[in-house]
């Protein structure tokens, strides 16, 4: 436990094993482990909205499982494009470092999410509004994404200094990740769980597209 917390701390600060230059000795399995262990903590908190019966406990478990799934599935979908783009930009020599930076960013995002868990729980405790809960979670994810970006950017700084083109690769990654991630979150919903619906792993309705839904909401059609 202490080792795990120490690893998280080093990752956030970018020191010791996670310092910027130490590519080869960075324990990447720890990074994956952090995502797999820490992200479910926030997922569980997220699913604890309106926790008034044993049946609602299932939502806690479902959301806990789905949180790392969201991060890793989004990464998996975006990786081939990122790989080929890096190759065409002539950055394949640095691919190992780029991938480590991205993985560390996801771990940073997970830790930030988990650290905001108590705040979310407190918000649920003080308000019963489902819409409010959804919006609050959107805000928490936005803040955590910022933390993830800080970590990624830290590891990308030497890469960009070496070859400016890494900046293009990094920004493309952010754009792809956000574009796919939003739709992935929409597909994997419910994360919070409407109090008027049964707890399910996936919604029973057919899949739909988040962007089209938002367009229709704005256009009022």
């Amino acid at each position: 436990m202490r080792v795990a917390i120490q690893h998280c701390d080093e990752l956030l600060r970018g020191t010791a094993r996670f310092r910027v230059g130490a590519t080869s000795q960075r324990p990447w399995w720890w990074v994956v482990a952090i995502i797999l262990v820490v992200a479910p903590l926030y997922g569980a908190v997220m699913g604890s909205f309106g926790l008034d019966s044993a049946e609602r406990l299932r939502q806690v478990v479902f959301s806990g499982v789905k949180a790392p799934l969201l991060l890793l599935a989004t990464t998996a979908v975006c990786l081939p494009g990122f790989f080929v783009l890096n190759t065409v930009l002539g950055l394949r020599d640095d691919l190992r470092e780029s991938l480590q930076a991205i993985l560390c960013g996801q771990a940073g995002l997970s830790i930030a999410l988990a650290s905001l868990g108590p705040v979310t729980r407190f918000w649920y405790f003080s308000t019963g509004s489902y819409r409010g809960a959804l919006l609050f979670n959107a805000a928490v994810f936005a803040i955590a994404a910022l933390a993830g970006q800080i970590v990624i950017s830290r590891y990308y700084r030497p890469l960009i200094a070496r070859r400016g083109r890494h900046r293009i690769a990094l920004y493309t990654w952010f754009a792809l990740y956000a574009f796919v991630g939003i739709q992935m979150a929409w597909m994997l919903r419910p994360f919070v769980g409407s109090p008027y619906m049964r707890s399910t792993f996936f919604r029973q309705e057919p899949f739909s597209n988040a962007y089209v839904v938002v367009f229709n909401l704005i256009a009022g059609t």
Partner: peptide, 10 residues
Amino acid sequence: PILGFFTLST
């Protein structure tokens, strides 16, 4: 894969 993923859900 990105295209396939969106196709599945759209």
